[in-house]
Every structure is written in structure tokens, then in C-alpha cells.
């Protein structure tokens, strides 16, 4: 039964180079919702002002067949220049940035600071009853730090979602 063989899910981090134009994000997001694909994280920003290019990083999951579909579907959008499955195409670096607000007094404050130091989180705002930490890293590292802050006084979290790039000299040209 060919379709039941195709049930193992995998994660994929997909980089998409697109024209920086109105509506492009709606096209990509609409494609995912319309075809029922997962989006675990999506980030977008212009990366080349002269050539009007933006880069989208999408973390998704699916069977190999579905991930192939996602790439092919993205690739046929008219303003898409290039699509790359970073997970498949070799080693890559994935990073995320989080801003984490922790509220508390006394010993809790000290504990928060000690842990932040251990995780290399930076204090970017402080009052006598709060901190905002900035932290960059792999998603799991952020998750771990946030989990530790919860009993101490976690008040608010803002995360960017994943950005990723392949290791080594190879480029991702339009």
C-alpha cells in the first residue's frame, strides 16, 4: 500500500527567496492554509534592498511527499525566486531571538539573574521588580530557559521565530 508507507513525519526548515512586494506573505501563508500544511514558525524580512529581495524562513513538518509538495508549490508562485530545504540540503544553523520579561522581588530576582547568566541571556531592561532578558539560540535552548523562568515569575515572552542559513561557503542566490 504505497500511501501507508508515507506516514513518517519529519521537520523541515525551508528558506524562500522572494520578490519584496505587497501581498507576497499573504500568498505564502494562503498557500499553507489553503492546502492544509503546517507552519510551526515563519519569519520574513528584506535581505537585499537593491535587488528588492526578501527572505522567508518556514519551519514545517510533514511526510517526505508533503514536504516535496510544499517546495514545489512555493516554487511555482510567480514572485518566488528560489526555495531550499535546509534540513535536507546539509548542515545549517537555525537561530531564534526571544525577549523574556520576568517579574519578582528578593531571592527570585537573584535566581533569575543567575540562570540568565548561565544561559547567556542579556539583561536589556531592568526595574526594581522586573527584568527583560534578550536571548538568542536554538529554539530548544529558548524553551528551556523560558520553562525555568516560569516558577520564578515569567510575565511575558516575545519570540522572532526561526531564521536559518546553510553552513559553509555555498550561497543562496536568486
Amino acid at each position: 500500500m504505497p500511501d501507508s508507507l508515507e506516514t513518517t513525519l519529519r521537520n523541515a526548515t525551508i528558506a524562500v527567496l522572494v520578490e519584496n512586494e505587497a501581498g507576497i506573505l499573504a500568498r505564502v501563508v494562503g498557500l499553507f492554509s489553503g492546502r492544509g500544511y503546517n507552519i510551526e514558525s515563519l519569519t520574513v524580512a528584506p535581505v537585499d534592498a537593491d535587488r528588492r529581495l526578501s527572505r522567508i524562513t518556514i519551519v514545517t513538518s510533514g511526510t517526505d511527499m508533503v514536504i516535496e509538495q510544499i517546495k514545489a508549490q512555493l516554487d511555482r508562485l510567480v514572485p518566488v525566486h528560489k526555495v531550499s530545504d535546509l534540513t535536507l540540503e546539509g548542515p545549517h544553523i537555525a537561530r531564534e531571538l526571544a525577549l523574556i520579561k520576568v517579574v519578582g522581588k528578593g531571592e527570585a530576582r537573584m535566581e533569575a539573574l543567575r540562570l540568565a547568566d548561565a544561559f547567556r541571556a542579556r539583561v536589556v531592561d531592568a526595574t526594581i521588580e522586573s527584568f527583560v532578558f534578550e536571548m538568542t539560540g536554538a529554539g530548544e535552548k529558548l524553551d528551556a530557559f523560558i520553562a525555568l523562568m516560569r516558577p520564578i515569575g515569567l510575565a511575558e515572552v516575545s519570540r522572532t521565530g526561526v531564521v536559518a542559513i546553510a553552513r559553509g561557503p555555498g550561497g543562496f542566490e536568486a
Partner: peptide
């Protein structure tokens, strides 16, 4: 029914749209 579709054949698919290939049938 996809899992009973032409069960014993090798399949060649020519299409101008790469997203049509391996979408329903491998």
C-alpha cells in the same frame, strides 16, 4: 482509491508543473 491504483506498474509522469508530480501518486 489511491492505494489500489494500478498496483503493479512502474509509473512515468511528464508534466510541465513540478508540483503535479508525486502529489497524489508516487
Amino acid at each position: 482509491r489511491l492505494n489500489a491504483f494500478s498496483p503493479n506498474s512502474k509509473k512515468i509522469h511528464a508534466d510541465i508543473d513540478p508540483s503535479s508530480i508525486n502529489k497524489n501518486v508516487k
